[in-house]
């Protein structure tokens, strides 16, 4: 007779836990418990920060070794590609130095917004997301450094995402490649579209790009910065990986390769910029 009692009690425990979880999710979804949840999340991040930092610093070389071993083939190929790219960029840098000086002069004269003019906070990536369904990184700066949710984050050659959660000394950055992340982009000819993440190690999908937009592989898309955009204009997002015009389609099928290697992120700059009202 003991078995049925245990089964009954077990089912009761499960029912209570499922109902509790469903209630929490409902409260969070409706926004009734957001303040409490945000406070709990911030508290947990700040409490975890010191020990997490020590362990992450201690084990990062091991992780780097593992990544190097797993990705050896692609790292070697990428190294060769980057060497060539570096040579090309050096040449272009020399060619464009004068043009950049002229552009800077014009922007200064016109008072136009420019990403380099936005104050920024440099932060180090301390760890990655615990979930495989969400592409985020945790950085070691938070509200104490003036960061707020919604601020854009950049690294290396371009945009990496935006701050979505801020604790006192920690912030979470949602990466561009996360499937829930979208950014308004502008093609080289000025046409506006939307780039959406498709998961780790994948290209960004461009939607709503007018058919007939002339594109070549390698063309760089930048943030559109249209009114109400959550990103300032002109930040490089990605370069064209594929561009196909289908006869029966209302939009061009375009994908972008992000300009930043998200698996190698170590330092990021958070732009102290927020969208207008």
């Amino acid at each position: 007779m003991a078995v049925p009692r245990r089964t009954s009690r077990t089912r009761y425990v499960l029912l209570v836990l499922v109902l509790t979880a469903a209630t929490i999710m409902t409260l969070a979804y409706r926004g009734h418990a957001n303040a409490v949840i945000d406070k709990a999340k911030s508290g947990a991040r700040d409490a975890f920060a010191p020990v997490g930092r020590v362990v992450a610093d201690a084990f990062r070389p091991v992780g780097n070794f593992f990544r190097g071993a797993v990705d050896y083939g692609s790292v070697k190929a990428e190294n060769a590609r980057l060497r060539k790219q570096l040579g090309d960029l050096r040449r272009q840098h020399l060619e464009q130095a004068d043009q950049r000086r002229q552009l800077a002069d014009l922007l200064r004269l016109q008072g136009l917004p420019f990403a380099e003019a936005i104050p920024k906070v440099t932060a180090e990536v301390v760890y990655l997301s615990t979930s495989n369904f969400q592409l985020t990184v945790e950085i070691d700066r938070g509200s104490a450094a003036g960061l707020r949710a919604g601020m854009p984050a950049v690294a290396g050659a371009g945009l990496i995402g935006r701050v979505v959660q801020v604790a006192r000394d920690r912030s979470t950055v949602l990466l561009l490649t996360d499937p829930s992340s979208s950014v308004g982009v502008r093609a080289p000819n000025g046409v506006v579209a939307v780039a959406t993440g498709q998961g780790a190690n994948r290209v960004l999908r461009v939607d709503y790009l007018a058919p007939g937009t002339p594109l070549q592989k390698g063309d760089v898309f930048v943030t559109s910065g249209t009114e109400g955009s959550i990103y300032p204009p002109g930040i490089p997002v990605g370069d064209v990986a594929t561009a196909v015009q289908r006869p029966d389609s209302l939009q061009e099928d375009v994908t972008l390769s992000p300009l930043v290697d998200f698996s190698q992120l170590q330092y990021v700059d958070v732009l102290k910029w927020s969208a207008g009202p």
Binding site: V18, T20, F48
Partner: peptide
């Protein structure tokens, strides 16, 4: 786990208990 995620709060709790 949910404390460190941006997914709906309680989703991991529900999944893991099941």
């Amino acid at each position: 786990t949910d404390l460190f995620l941006q997914t709906p709060f309680g989703l991991s709790a529900l999944t893991f208990c099941l």
